[in-house]
Design a protein around this nucleic acid. Structure first.
Length: 812
RNA sequence: GCGAGAGUGGCGGAAUGGCAGACGCGCCGGACUUAGGAUCCGGUGCCGCAAGGCGUGGGGGUUCAAGUCCCCCCUCUCGCACCA
C-alpha cells in the first residue's frame, strides 16, 4: 500500500474495473425489491457540466450506491433531452447541425459523469432526438389524439421573436420568453395544436394530496391549476334578442348588487352591441388594449381603465338595466371573458365603479352588525341585504340559493373554473419531433399518420433557420410536405410543426425501463417491475411545466390501460442551487464557471464529491467556494493514512474499547439515518467526527470490524478511495457489492449522560451520571451540586423540573 | 399586492422546545521541516485579567427553558401577477 493517496491513479483504475464488471447494469429481478432512482434528464449543452450540475448528480449517486448496498435492485439511468430550442439555437449559432452536436455534447456529459464516478447503467442511455425514441413520442401524440385530447384551434398566441416560435402560456414569464428574459413576447393569430390538459385539471389538483413532494412545488402547481368554485350565469343584452352575456362569479350571492357588466376587450360581443355613439371610443380602447398586451404586462397596480359600450344588460335579479363596459382588467382567457360588476363586494369592481361614477350598492354586510367600510369593497363573507329572496341569508347559504335558482330558471349553473389553459404543443421550429398528422387535399381533412408508418422522420436539412413567418422550416421542404393521404391515398400535406420539447420529457421515465424495446413505447413487464419512479430529483425550476405535463401523460396512459399507476413520481426532491463564488449564476458569459474537470484534476473525484455534498444541505442553495475542496481532500488523506497504519500493523484484532465500539455503532446509525433523510452534509460530518476520534487510537486498539465499517459507510460518498482501501484490506470483491453495515442499538447506547443543572434558566453545573439513573438520584445529586449551593443560598426552590437524561431545572 | 421559503461566528453550515455554534474552511500558536498552500498537536462567537455577562435580523409574548412555538415589523430569495 502506497504511503501517499494518489486519487488520479486510483480513480481511473477503478472506473475501468467497474465498467468491465458492468457493476451498475440493472436487470429485472422479481426476487429483489427494486429502487428506481431518476434525475431529470438534462439537455446536453456544449459547455459541458459545471460543478453546479453535480449538486444533483453526486447526491443521487450516493443514494443509488447506498440503496444498492442495502440490497435493492437499483435502476439508475441517464439520457439526453436532446430535442428542442437550446440544441437548435446552439447549432445555428455555431453553424453546425444539431445531429452532430447533440451526440458530441452528450458524449462529453457522459465522460464527465463517469469521471466523477457516477454509477449509471449506460446500457440504457436514451436520446430523445433519436428516431427510435421519437417514434414513440409521436405514438403518444396519436394516443392523445385518438382519445380526443389533441386538437387544433385558431387562437391568439404568444410569439417569441428570438425563438421564432409560439409559446405556451407557462413559457411566458413576466411578459417575456422563458428562454429570453429580455425579449417581450408578442401576439400572433395562428392555427395550432393543443393538448387538452384542462380535462385533467381536477385530477392533477386532487392527486397532489397523495404524493410526497416538496410543499412549495405542490403550492405552485395548485396555484397554476387555480381552481375556483362559483356559478356561471347569463344576463340578456337589452335590445339584442337572443344575445346574452355569460359570466363566471365566485360570489353569486352578490347578484342583486350588480350595477354594471364588463367585457374583455377581445370579447366577441363587443363589436356587436356597441352603440354608434360609442363605437369610436370603444374601437380605440380595444386597439390600445391589444397593443398594450403586446408591449409589457409588467405593470402591476396600474389604474383600471374602460369604456362604456352604450349597451345595457338586464340584471334578472334586481330587474334593473345595467351598463355594459369594456375594460382590460377582464381577461378573455379566464372564465368567459365577461364579469358582473359587483362593486360593493369586489375591490377591483369597486375601484372601477368609483373611477367611472357607477352605482355602488351594498348587498353584503358584516354578520356581527358592524358597519360596512365606505372606502373599499366589503369582500368578506357576511349577511346578505337588499337582495330580494336572499335578504337575511348568510353568504354561504345565499350562494347555494342563487345556484339553485339559476338552475331552475335555466339561466346558469354552479360550476368550477380553472386558471390553467390547454397546453400549446405546436412549434414552428426544425429540431423536434414532427407532429404525425396529414392534411388530405380531398375530403378526409385532418388524418393522423397510422402507427405502423411511424416515425415521421425529421428530414435532414442544411438550412433550418426559422422563417419568421410563423411557419416551420419544414414547410420549405416539398419532399417532406407532399405526401399521400393515409386514408384515401390522394394528395395530402404533412403538418410541418414539430412537438414542444416537453412532450419528449413527458414519458422518458418509462422508456428507461426498456430502452431498446421496439414493439411499443415500453415493455409492459419491465414497466410493471420498475415503475413508478421511487425517487425523482431535479431543480425546482421545473415545478410547473415538466412536472405537470408528465403527470398528465401518465394519467392518460393510466386511462388507456397502458400502465397501472397514475402518478409517475410519488416522491420528488429538489436540490438547492449552486451559485458561483460571486453569488451569481454560473455561466460562461459571466466567466465564473468552475468545471468538474478542473477540480478532479486538482483534487480528485472523491474529494470533489465530498465537497459537493458537504458544502450545504442537499436542498439548500449556496455559493461555490473552492477552499472547501481542500478540506475534503485532507479528510481523504487522513482516511488513507488511518487505514494504511492499520494495514501496516498487520490488521490486528486489537483491544477495542467499549467507547470505540459505541462510537462506531452510533456512526452507523447516524450515517444511515442522515442518508435516508438526504442530509448528506451531516452524514459526512458524522464520519469526519468518527475519524477524529479513531485517528488518535493505536492500531492495537482497533480491529477489522471498526476499519471496515468505517470504509463501508464512506463507500457511497467516496467510491474510489474506499474501493482501493477495501482491496488493501485483502478483499477481492468490490466494496460496492457489500452489504450496508447495521448497528446494534445496545452497543450504540451511551453508558453515561451529562445532565445539565439550570437555575432560573441558566446553566450552572453539569452532572455525569449513569444513563439509567433514576429521577430521585439525579435530583439529589443536583441539590448537592456546588453551583446549586452557591446560587440557592439556602433558599428552597419554588419548582424543580426534571427531564430524563437531559437536565434538572431549578426555579428559585 | 398575494403565496412559499430563508435570515445563526470572519465564511459554509450544526442543533426531536432542553448545554447555541457539531463538522469543515479560514485564522492564531506550537511541533517536524532546507522549504510549505504538506503533515501533526493545541486554540478560535463577542465583551472581560477574572468572576461573570452578552449573544441565533428587530420588537413583543408563551414557557422552568425559545434559533426552534405565537403576534408585529425589517431584509433577502423564489413563485404568481387584475383569475372575476
Amino acid at each position: 500500500m502506497d504511503e501517499r493517496y494518489d486519487p488520479k491513479a486510483c480513480e481511473s483504475k477503478w472506473q475501468q474495473v467497474w465498467e468491465r464488471m458492468q457493476l451498475y447494469r440493472a436487470t429485472e429481478d422479481p426476487s429483489r425489491p427494486k429502487f428506481y432512482l431518476l434525475e431529470m434528464f438534462p439537455y446536453p449543452s456544449g459547455d459541458g457540466l459545471s460543478v453546479g450540475h453535480l449538486r444533483n448528480y453526486v447526491p443521487c449517486d450516493v443514494i443509488g450506491r447506498y440503496k444498492r448496498m442495502q440490497g435493492f435492485n437499483v435502476l439508475h439511468p441517464m439520457g439526453w433531452d436532446a430535442f428542442g430550442l437550446p440544441a437548435e439555437n446552439d447549432a445555428l449559432l455555431k453553424g453546425l447541425h444539431p445531429k452532430e452536436t447533440v451526440p458530441r455534447y452528450a458524449a462529453n456529459y457522459r465522460r464527465q459523469l463517469k469521471m466523477v464516478g457516477c454509477a449509471y447503467d449506460w446500457s440504457r442511455e436514451i436520446n430523445s432526438s433519436d428516431p427510435k425514441y421519437y417514434r414513440w413520442t409521436q405514438w403518444f401524440f396519436l394516443l392523445l389524439y385518438h382519445r380526443g385530447l389533441a386538437y387544433r384551434a385558431l387562437g391568439s398566441q404568444w410569439w417569441c421573436e428570438k425563438c421564432r416560435t409560439i409559446l405556451a402560456n407557462e413559457q411566458v414569464i413576466e411578459g417575456c420568453c422563458w428562454r429570453h428574459p429580455d425579449t417581450p413576447v408578442t401576439k400572433k393569430d395562428l392555427e395550432q395544436w393543443y393538448f387538452k390538459i384542462t380535462a385533467y385539471a381536477e385530477r392533477l389538483l386532487k392527486d397532489l394530496d397523495d404524493i410526497d413532494w416538496p410543499e412549495p412545488i405542490k403550492v405552485m402547481q395548485r396555484n397554476w391549476i387555480g381552481r375556483s368554485e362559483g356559478a356561471e350565469i347569463a344576463f340578456p343584452v337589452v335590445g339584442h334578442p337572443g344575445r346574452e352575456i355569460r359570466f363566471f362569479t365566485t360570489r353569486p350571492d352578490t347578484v342583486f348588487g350588480v350595477s354594471f357588466m364588463v367585457l374583455a376587450p377581445e370579447h366577441p360581443l363587443v363589436a356587436e352591441i356597441t352603440t354608434p355613439e360609442q363605437r369610436q371610443a370603444v374601437q380605440e380602447y380595444v386597439a390600445q388594449a391589444r397593443r398594450q398586451s403586446e408591449i409589457e404586462r409588467l405593470s402591476t397596480v396600474k389604474e383600471k381603465t374602460g369604456v362604456f359600450t352604450g349597451a345595457y344588460a338586464y340584471n334578472v335579479f334586481s330587474q334593473k338595466e345595467v351598463p355594459i363596459w369594456v375594460a382590460d382588467y377582464v381577461l378573455m382567457g379566464y372564465g368567459t371573458g365577461a364579469i358582473m360588476g359587483a362593486p360593493g363586494e369586489d375591490q377591483r369592481d369597486f375601484e372601477f365603479a368609483k373611477k367611472y361614477g357607477l352605482e355602488i350598492p351594498r348587498v353584503t354586510v358584516p354578520a356581527d352588525g358592524s358597519p360596512v367600510p365606505q372606502d373599499r369593497a366589503y369582500t368578506e363573507y357576511g349577511k346578505t341585504v337588499n337582495s330580494g329572496f336572499l335578504t337575511g341569508m348568510p353568504t354561504e347559504e345565499a350562494i347555494k340559493a342563487v345556484c339553485k335558482w339559476v338552475e331552475e330558471k335555466e339561466i346558469g349553473k354552479a360550476t368550477v373554473t380553472y386558471r390553467m389553459r390547454d397546453w400549446l404543443i405546436s412549434r414552428q421550429r426544425y429540431w423536434g419531433a414532427p407532429i404525425p398528422i396529414v392534411y388530405c387535399k380531398r375530403n378526409c381533412g385532418i388524418v393522423p399518420v397510422p402507427e405502423d408508418q411511424l416515425p415521421v422522420l425529421l428530414p435532414d436539412l442544411k438550412e433550418y433557420q426559422p422563417s419568421g413567418t410563423g411557419r416551420s422550416p419544414l414547410a420549405n421542404v416539398p419532399e417532406f410536405v407532399n405526401t399521400n393521404c393515409p386514408r384515401c391515398g390522394g394528395p395530402a400535406e404533412r403538418e410541418t410543426d414539430t412537438l414542444d420539447g416537453f412532450a419528449c420529457s413527458s414519458w422518458y421515465y418509462l422508456r428507461f425501463a426498456s430502452p431498446h424495446y421496439d414493439q411499443g413505447p415500453f415493455d409492459p413487464n419491465a414497466v410493471n417491475y420498475w415503475l413508478p419512479v421511487d425517487l425523482y430529483v431535479g431543480g425546482a425550476e421545473h415545478a410547473v411545466m415538466h412536472l405537470l405535463y408528465a403527470r398528465m401523460w401518465t394519467k392518460v396512459m393510466f386511462d388507456a390501460g397502458l400502465i397501472n399507476f397514475h402518478e409517475p413520481f410519488p416522491k420528488l426532491r429538489n436540490q438547492g442551487m449552486l451559485w458561483a463564488a460571486d453569488g451569481q449564476k454560473m455561466s460562461k458569459s459571466r466567466g465564473n464557471v468552475v468545471t468538474p474537470d478542473a477540480m478532479v484534476e486538482k483534487y480528485g473525484a472523491d474529494a470533489l464529491r465530498l465537497w459537493e455534498i458537504f458544502m450545504a444541505p442537499f436542498d439548500e442553495s449556496t455559493n461555490w467556494n473552492e477552499d472547501g475542496v481542500v478540506g475534503a481532500s485532507r479528510f481523504l488523506n487522513r482516511v488513507w493514512s488511518f487505514v494504511r497504519r492499520f494495514v501496516q500493523a498487520g490488521c490486528p484484532e486489537g483491544n477495542v474499547s467499549v467507547e470505540t465500539q459505541r462510537r462506531v455503532h452510533k456512526a452507523i446509525r447516524t450515517v444511515t439515518d442522515h442518508i435516508e433523510r438526504m442530509r448528506f452534509n451531516t452524514a459526512l460530518a458524522a464520519l469526519m467526527d468518527l475519524l477524529n476520534y479513531l485517528g488518535k487510537l493505536e492500531p492495537t486498539e482497533l480491529n477489522r470490524f471498526v476499519i471496515e465499517t468505517y470504509i463501508l459507510l464512506l463507500a457511497p460518498m467516496a467510491p474510489h478511495i474506499t474501493e482501493e482501501l477495501w482491496q488493501a484490506l485483502g478483499h477481492s470483491r468490490s466494496i460496492h457489492l457489500e452489504r450496508w453495515p447495521s448497528y446494534d442499538p445496545e452497543l450504540a447506547r451511551e453508558e453515561t449522560v451529562t445532565i445539565v443543572v439550570q437555575i432560573n434558566g441558566k446553566v450552572r453545573d453539569r452532572i455525569e451520571a449513569p444513563a439509567d439513573i433514576d429521577e430521585a438520584s439525579v435530583r439529589a445529586m443536583a441539590m448537592k451540586s456546588r453551583a446549586v449551593e452557591r446560587y440557592l443560598a439556602g433558599k428552597t426552590p419554588k419548582k424543580v423540573i426534571y427531564v430524563p437524561r437531559k437536565l434538572v431545572s431549578i426555579v428559585v
